[in-house]
Amino acid sequence: MNRDPKEEQKLITLCQEGNIEALERLYRCFSQDVYNMALRMTGSSDIAEEVTQEVFISVFKDIWRFQFQSSFTTWLYRIVMRRSADFFRKNKHHLVRSVDWENSDQHNPPFEIDDPGPNPCDVAFENEREQLIEYAILSLSKKQRTILLLRYVQNLSYEEIAGILRCRLGTVKSRLNRAHRSLERKLSEMKII
């Protein structure tokens, strides 16, 4: 769905009046970003579903607090961060050891007989490589992972990231540098780069 600021503002206003259809349209607009962020933050599609669900319920409950002083995306991602943090707090004992990418099969159907496309071996190799990268991202610290995902998966600017994380621009840049260094080291160890 195309994000038109005026349309977005209208939907938010309607949502503030308790309109569920407006919430559904907001959901259609942002669910993929929220789900992807939650998936990569938690490393499990089940938990990502739960987090996405909680995020949009929180949006509906607390949207009256939104006063159009920041962008809706910033406000929304702040909720995603909070809900993911809640998940980590509740599951301190939970160690992310394996990557559960159920959906990756849906997007890259690996073996179809009639498919004249890429070689199945290449597809399998590509899938494995993607999983390794995802695993490397998951093994970063929570702060480094968050900043890296906001920058490269959600394609947000430094200013927007600073707004979401409520920190200074310099902090964002230095933290991103550290995240890059850690990830590059991990990918080198895995012989990916």
Binding site: Y27, N36, E49, S104, Y152, V153
Partner: peptide, 25 residues
Amino acid sequence: LPSHSAPDRIWSHIAREVRSIPPKR
């Protein structure tokens, strides 16, 4: 990095939850 689409069942859960809880205002 691939983008994963959210499963459709999430919205049905949200809708059910939201309808049962009136907005706190």
